[in-house]
């Protein structure tokens, strides 16, 4: 099953209510508001737990999302661009989170840098339609993926630490 830490994180993210996808016009706006509320709460939780690890934003339609996620390893911060589209079948199907910068660098990815999810993800998502949203996909999918893959990629020298060139940020 999903590990205890992930389960705890997951359960502290507010659940969504509206079953609506990008083709549902007004209901989609309602759903988008819920998505943002859950994400804001999740980021707040992370900050309080001193485990702030991503930022996300979307275009106006809420169908294209982009942002950054980062992972601290041996006191160094490794940062990655994150992006995904909301499929028309959302929220029945989860978004496919992608780290395009790592595309082709690890076997735990599909084309385009889409991360490979564990066997737990899809059943858990399916059982929680429409309550799970983007924040849950991040906590259940990307969080554990980074924790397993990034240390390994650093060790193999595939991912290298990059000094921040722009200090003011």
């Amino acid at each position: 099953m999903v590990d205890e830490g992930t389960r705890k994180t997951l359960s502290s993210i507010p659940l969504l209510k509206t079953k609506a996808g990008p083709r549902d016009k007004e209901l989609w706006t309602t759903r988008l508001k819920e998505e943002y509320q859950a994400l804001i709460k999740y980021v707040q939780n992370n900050k309080e737990a001193d485990n702030d690890w991503f930022r996300l934003e979307s275009d106006k339609t809420g169908t294209k999302w982009f942002g950054k996620c980062w992972y601290i390893h041996n006191l160094l911060k490794y940062e990655f661009d994150l992006e995904f589209d909301i499929p028309i079948t959302y929220p029945t199907t989860a978004p496919e989170l992608a780290l395009p910068g790592l595309d082709g660098k690890t076997a735990k990815m599909y084309r385009g840098g889409k991360i490979c999810l564990t066997d737990h993800f899809k059943p858990l998502w399916a059982r929680n339609v429409p309550r799970f949203g983007i924040a849950h996909a991040m906590a259940l999918g990307l969080g554990p993926w980074l924790a397993v893959e990034i240390p390994d990629l650093i060790e193999k020298g595939v991912v290298k630490y990059q000094e921040k060139s722009e200090e003011a940020k």
Binding site: L10, S11, S12, I13, P14, L15, L16, K17, T29, L32, K33, E34, Y36, Q37, A38, L39, I40, K41, V43, Q44, K47, R55, L56, E57, S58, G62, L124, R127, N128, R131
Partner: peptide, 27 residues
């Protein structure tokens, strides 16, 4: 019955979508 959740469900927000987007952006 959802997976056990202590986070509850999202409450209806008084904020508009634009305001929520802005709030997320400024975090």
């Amino acid at each position: 019955t959802p997976e056990s959740s202590t986070g509850g469900a999202v409450a209806a927000s008084e904020l508009s979508l634009e305001e929520l987007m802005q709030q997320m952006k400024s975090m």
